[in-house]
Nucleic acid binder design. Structure first.
Lengths: 268, 268
DNA sequence: CAACTTACGATCATAAAGGATCAAAGCATG
DNA sequence: CATGCTTTGATCCTTTATGATCGTAAGTTG
């Protein structure tokens, strides 16, 4: 199918940066003329740059592709976590959705089965997913745009939070360190996340097991009795013990490995 | 029953992201023509995106789909107007881009030929176009999301403007009435537009000739000596007289079909 | 500078998919 | 119970996409 092939070529070029036509043709299992046509399409879209004998990923498409790749990693776990988080929603709630691929899954669930809620977010992708849904009132935080995860940050965003209050906050995390704290890769994002927590009656952190045990630069918050956590059931038990000891209300959700396998397969 | 099947297809596509017609037909136990009809229905609802041989779940259909239809009307004029507006930009300026299809063309120009500027906008589509461009600092206004033109509105957006100041504002308009005033179709948008004008050293209204002589509900501003206007050269001369009389600095730009063909590629 | 190699674009044939029309079956209503 | 409407499935025809072949252009090497 053409669409899948285009997507596959983009991902292939994202990983390899540049590749020959032959290489691409073999990778996606298509003939050379077809690959040429596809590259022509992708070039007009601005996603790739064609060269003699091959093609290179366009600079601007790099971040976009990186976002797609991150969204696809641990997709089954993220989906399951998103479903559990979604189940916490009740009509007429005021919910804040943080920027991140796991939280984005909650937004997708809402899009699938809308209920009358007010959604606040600092993530353009979330806003985009929830556009045009009856009963869902979307409010976007203002501020400086950070392209990596399509979020808004900065002093403007922080001061806007001062005037808002949420029943529920779903918070993402880049990593969860051995010290039992969540981390992000951006200073402003960390500060904004901290502030979100102070503006929500209840905060639920969404983080799949693969994020545990790593460390990013900027600490956000300790996972203690102020917070809920939803993760997947592949998390090592010593983590669960540590979390329980800290008083963090943890829920683990199961997910089917088949689902992720299926979705990995359709890339090629 | 039809509704059950539509729901089943939605859920199936949500899980799989994309699937072939055969796959869907087998999954829901219906014939191929039926599945096609269902997908047609779902596509008009904006729930899925059809491709050759299959369909995929609509991720971001909201913003671009609603926009694209209107974007194509008078596209040549809008592009020419956008180019002229772009030529007014200088490095290190602070520019506000209003929400609208004509102003969006300015953003596309900036993407094609970036220069170091700060861009402020209340339009998600503009923000999206200007994502990932080195040298272009994008700041998005916060507020309630209005899906029709992917803009943010409301008290939050207005109060955010109080703390900002721009060298240049490019303002769109739904219509320009016989009274020489610009109009929009939304009350909040009109109020926000008014406020934008007070926060900018210079305001340039972008409106192609087709918008003149119509009337929408909410008045924004009079086209007088406080404002610049860029329109196309198909505007009737009695309009030009009227604008000159009001003191509005008006520029008309020519456009021909060749120029629009030149820029077809940058749409995505 | 010339010849050879390689890649590119165009055209064409083929196979698959989409759209349209039509007939039949199910359901509601008079 | 009959009639009419909606819905479904089958067949036709058109469109689209893909892959092969050929001529041409470009790049490389002697």
């Amino acid at each position: 199918m053409k669409d899948d092939r285009l997507s596959a070529i983009r991902h292939y070029l994202f990983e390899k940066t540049s590749a020959s036509i032959h290489e691409i043709a073999e990778a996606v299992g298509a003939s050379l003329p077809t690959v040429r046509r596809d590259l022509l399409t992708l070039e007009t879209e601005g996603a790739v740059h064609r060269t003699h004998g091959g093609a290179r990923i366009a600079d601007s498409a790099g971040i976009e592709a990186a976002f797609e790749v991150r969204e696809q990693t641990c997709i089954a776990a993220k989906r399951a976590i998103g479903l559990t988080a979604y189940a916490d929603l009740r009509p007429d709630m005021s919910v804040f959705l943080d920027a991140g691929t796991t939280v984005l899954q909650v937004a997708r669930r809402i899009r699938m089965n809308p209920l009358p809620i007010s959604v606040f977010t600092n993530c353009l992708a979330v806003a985009q997913v929830l556009t045009d849904i009856r009963d869902v009132q979307v409010t976007l935080l203002g501020g400086r745009l950070r392209s990596r995860n399509a979020s808004v940050l900065g002093a403007l965003a922080e001061s806007m939070l001062d005037r808002l209050w949420f029943d529920q906050l779903f918070l993402g995390a880049s990593t969860v360190g051995d010290d039992g704290c969540t981390y992000t890769m951006d200073e402003d994002e960390a500060r904004l996340n901290e502030k979100m927590i102070t503006r929500a009656a209840r905060t639920t952190v969404l983080a799949d097991a693969s994020k545990f045990g790593q460390r990013a630069t900027y600490q956000v918050t300790r996972l203690d009795d102020r917070l809920d956590l939803i993760t997947d059931d592949s998390l090592a038990s010593h983590w669960l013990d540590k979390l329980a000891q800290a008083g963090c209300r943890t829920r683990t959700v199961g997910f089917d490995a088949d689902e992720s396998a299926e979705l990995d397969g359709d890339a090629a």
